[in-house]
Amino acid sequence: MSGVKRDRDGNARVKPAPQDGPRGRFHDMFEGFRDELDEHHDRRERIIKASRDVTALSKKIVKHLGKGIPPGTQKDVDSKLEDIAKLLTSVAPDLQSLNRYRYSYSLRCLEEFVEALSFLHYLRHQTLISKGEVDAAMPADISLTPHDYLYGVFDLFGEMMRFATVTTAQMGELVGNEAGRNILSDIHELSCAYEMLPEIPTKDYRGKMEVMRQSVQKVEKLGYGIVVRGSERPKGWIPDMKDDAPAPTSP
């Protein structure tokens, strides 16, 4: 059996011509069900679409930030944040009350969004954005779950690692401040905090932990390279990481 075909937007569907002849005993009941299910599917598709776009925009923000925050970048980031706000606001009514968790899976963009916000925050303030600060930065009436926050910050490790690699190559030392903190000590501190959390027994969580550890190790290698060969290395040199064990890819 096949349902009625619907277009990609999920709304314009060809209504079947009303059938003559006897209607089954449960016809009315199932017609009600059909309307409810259609409503659900339409809602989910709206969310998935917005989520996809928010994910793309968040990734673009992160990419821009890899270059630090010159004024031009700031403008770019702001305009992208505005677009994200519009998208999230458009689906906010679909995500109230019961429906917030119902469509969690379709709304994974929030993790990416948290990642972008946390990276932005780190570059500006050299601190980890708190859940409350992310909540305050949410541009729409959508509640952010602890899960979104936890997993979003997981992705911050990859960004810190990339940022550390690029800046080390440019400056010949690990970025840091006068007070003695640098990106290596920061990534260490953050990863220790994660290690101390109670373990969540899901594959997803274990995978994220593994990727996190790999990012930390890469930054450790950078620090090592500077100490051991610091004076010899020319600007633009980065430690050769090809001889790493099975080259892990970060998210």
Partner: peptide
């Protein structure tokens, strides 16, 4: 340093 990366309450909350 006077500034630290983490506000300890963040991870207490998560835990």
């Amino acid at each position: 340093s006077e500034s630290t990366l983490l506000d300890p309450s963040i991870f207490e909350y998560l835990k």
